[in-house]
Design a binder for these strands. Structure first.
Lengths: 246, 246
DNA sequence: TATAATTGTGTATATTTTACACATTCATTA
DNA sequence: TAATGAATGTGTAAAATATACACAATTATA
């Protein structure tokens, strides 16, 4: 039974009951969320994976996900997974894409909404104690379970694009960071090398970094200054890009 | 019943049966797609809307949507709606975002995946015959049914952003267009004025326009040259942007 | 106290973007 | 058929931005 079919049918105002009957009786699909959780450690971009819990994919790694509960917002489901898996409450989380091929999941029709999360691996509350949970260098992620390889690559590309347009990257760093840390981060995410002087010039010109008047500790060379990102100032001044370029 | 709960639980490999039981018995949610269909007519950006078919929203306009069938890819559901509503088969269509608040739909739990579509209102196959279907100037869209105002605005913003980075806009124009048409299109989508000479310079420099050696007809002034977009060349040469800017 | 390593800084050049004016073409109409 | 109106087609100078590149200063370590 279709709600609306041809463009020739007569006008009809549907009652809530009629719709409710449809919604409750037919067309129900299992819905899950999958989180691509990124971290930055030892100057490498990492992703948090778990061993697949399906026999079919035994030995393969997969993203962290779960079914959405019937009375749970989908964003809330993603936050729940993050909390369960990392112990962290306030993390950067953004919806990326929804994957809905009929046969994407072996257990039946499961549509999954994917999220990209960025966490600071040095956060004091972070606990990755669960069995089978591990950080993987993004470069070594090659054949995940289900369609998770596709999902991961989609999410990673989105990250690479967005990190250049918005101040997301800071979520991966400690609150206090050096300009070298920041450059290493961008180089790891984008997999490129950048000129150190021009990188500094660019960030200082933006004028969103607050000089904390502190220095790095325990480095075996001249220590650099520490900074934090000025989100308030960014929110006020952020530009709306205008410029056709493709 | 939760599939996975704490991070302390013991390792367990779930069977497909166990998962299938969960998927089939619980956690089912109705899934719909909603299409934001844009057109360009009389130098204005338009969106195709239908009168709401719910009493609760009688008199309000809403986006074109439908439930996803149990054995239908979500992309296929979006294409189906476009075909049903416009008669068109091969149109630009891109997923934008998924809206999944528990109470977003009065009939119960319905999560909706939204799509942005761009169509050429001059396409010879286009037929908007259905009752209650109308093109609305995007500037006049103010209080749609359900959460469709939110969905529309999200989609429109995404369009404004993407049209600057990718050659989407041509989907809104006839196959042959003048540079003035193209500029009017960008000005309508972005709601800005652009310098005519710099606009031309920019597009000629990209070198993706093919001069058709034809002129506009029936204009009450000097006719302009007609062009088409060279998608093959674009696909070969498209750049990957690198440059932090926010 | 000399060395190794990395920070911090400035300038010149190339590229890109912006601002801006006039001659040309075609349709219309006087 | 000549004059007018309206938009097309074109180039250059100035400003802003991005790139390439080298050396002195600081700290830890040997």
């Amino acid at each position: 039974m279709k709600i609306e079919d041809s463009s020739q049918q007569k006008k009809h105002i549907k009652t809530l009951q009629a719709i409710q009957t449809e919604v409750q009786s037919t067309n129900k699909i299992a819905l899950s969320v999958d989180c691509v959780i990124f971290g930055f450690d030892e100057n490498k971009l990492k992703v948090l994976l778990i061993r697949s819990d399906l026999k079919k994919y035994a030995g393969k790694w997969s993203l962290l996900g779960d079914l959405v509960l019937p009375v749970e917002d989908i964003d809330a489901a993603a936050y729940r997974i993050l909390k369960q898996r990392t112990g962290l409450n306030d993390v950067y989380l953004e919806q990326v894409h929804t994957f809905g091929k009929v046969n994407r999941h072996p257990a039946g029709r499961v549509v999954t909404v994917t999220y990209c999360s960025l966490i600071n691996v040095q956060h004091h509350k972070l606990n990755i104690f669960a069995n089978e949970l591990h950080w993987h260098d993004v470069k070594s992620v090659t054949s995940l379970a289900f369609d998770h390889q596709l999902i991961f690559e989609n999410c990673f590309q989105q990250l690479q694009k967005r990190v250049q347009e918005h101040p997301l990257g800071f979520n991966l760093l400690p609150k206090k960071f050096s300009l070298r840390d920041l450059q290493n981060l961008y180089e790891a995410i984008l997999d490129i090398k950048m000129d150190r002087r021009n990188f500094r010039k660019k960030f200082f010109a933006m004028d969103f970094l607050i000089d904390l008047k502190e220095m790095e500790q325990d480095v075996p060379h001249r220590p650099g200054k520490l900074y934090k990102f000025n989100y308030e100032k960014y929110e006020k001044k952020k530009k709306k890009m205008v410029g056709i370029d493709f």
